[in-house]
Design a protein around this nucleic acid. Structure first.
Lengths: 222, 222
DNA sequence: AATTGTTCTGACCGAACGGTCAGCATTGTT
DNA sequence: AACAATGCTGACCGTTCGGTCAGAACAATT
């Protein structure tokens, strides 16, 4: 009845599905696939249990939709990287992007973590094919940077895993981090401080010149 | 009837309990507290389900025994650290110890990770009290090192979390790492390579002089 | 007002859950 | 040989699990 045909007919459905997906993401990320129950997801979404199955079909379909949604958010990271790129700029952007992604989708990150802990029964192929190609192609470029003398001769795969783990830590282990530093949650100041710390240590540790403020150096001279 | 009274009477019991604990550690670490079933633990231990409850009392008691066992293994790390210690030596030892611990007790590490992901319902107090004191006391010493000019002025808590996350990654995310690098498991050569990489990047990144072989530097002189 | 198609959900299903217990098997003591 | 004490487990309990389904509720079209 409107100029746009498709979206208006499913506008209501779309809203409910998003509500279910968000609720499910929270429950699955906390308790994993087996530990999450449709009843607790329904409670979280304030909907009857049968309604969840009406929209999502089954527990497994719901879970896979969540994984796909999370993987899609990932695809934009480090797309335009070439041997001519500046390592410092690229690594900084990588660290910052991953910190932002973790903050924007904390439940999605935890969901991914729980899936890996369970042995990646649903993501096995994704890890072995798509993610592997992603890592391999970036690793090849980093190796060229090393060969060009732009940075130390480190194994690029370990470097990628280092950035991955260090950034991921603050979303997946937020419970641990906040308890240890005695806060309820990390504020923007903390996150900026963490990001700056990681950029400083990782770039300097790889022998990459940093373009950020060198305020962390023990010697201010050149 | 022997010189040792207590241990002989419970030798059999001890063996069975260890068998159950090891089986339970595997199942809990994969699926979390809720996702683990006593039946699957019993299957893993090749024992009838009722036997598990005979020895452990309840699912919760079994889980808490596992957490305590894992926490006990942790207490030896970085005990003898003073402001006079050499930062390079201490940080290297920290990295190596954590890598070894993760390799020795991979299921225990994953168990811990799953507990944190679930919001640390059982470890809340441990994190907020004991672990916090552990981190605070080490952080105070690291700050003195920075003040003495022995290393860059970085936030010691972020440094501790960085080492924690980077080392933990290879045990907790072993599924992801092995799939991405196309192996079934990480061998000793990989682990040595990773350890050396982490020592290089983290020590150099914090402005700490390293005593290990400087083979990774892009310049071999000096 | 009647018809049609979609949305929704209470009630129910068999299976699996954590936990209990009666009672058989095994061992150690006398 | 008799007797406790402990080890052990099949059978069972009430509850919750993922999933099905008949039919009520609702909206849109005629």
């Amino acid at each position: 009845m409107s100029l746009e045909a498709a979206p208006s007919e499913s506008a209501h459905r779309e809203r409910i599905e998003q509500r279910i997906l968000n609720a499910a993401e929270q429950v699955f990320s906390q308790h994993g696939y087996r530990g999450a129950s449709l009843q607790s997801i329904a409670d979280q979404a304030v909907l009857p249990k049968a309604n969840i199955l009406y929209y999502m079909g089954s527990k497994q379909e719901l879970y896979i939709r969540l994984l796909n949604r999370m993987m899609r958010r990932w695809n934009a990271v480090l797309e335009d990287i070439t041997p001519a790129s500046d390592p410092g700029r690229v690594l900084s952007e990588f660290i910052r992007t991953k910190m932002v992604l973790g903050q924007r989708y904390p439940e999605g990150s935890k969901l991914f973590a729980a899936e890996i802990l369970a042995g990646a029964p649903f993501l096995n192929e994704y890890l072995a094919v798509e993610l592997r190609e992603w890592v391999d192609s970036r690793a090849a470029i980093i190796r060229q940077w090393s060969a060009q003398g732009k940075m130390d001769d480190v194994d690029p795969r370990w470097l990628i895993f280092l950035i991955w783990s260090a950034t991921q830590h603050y979303t997946e282990y937020s419970t641990q981090v906040t308890r240890v530093i005695g806060k309820d949650e990390l504020d923007d100041k903390d996150l900026a401080s963490i990001t700056q710390f990681l950029e400083h240590v990782i770039l300097k540790g790889c022998g990459v010149a940093s373009q950020s403020v060198p305020s962390l150096e023990k010697t201010a001279d050149l």
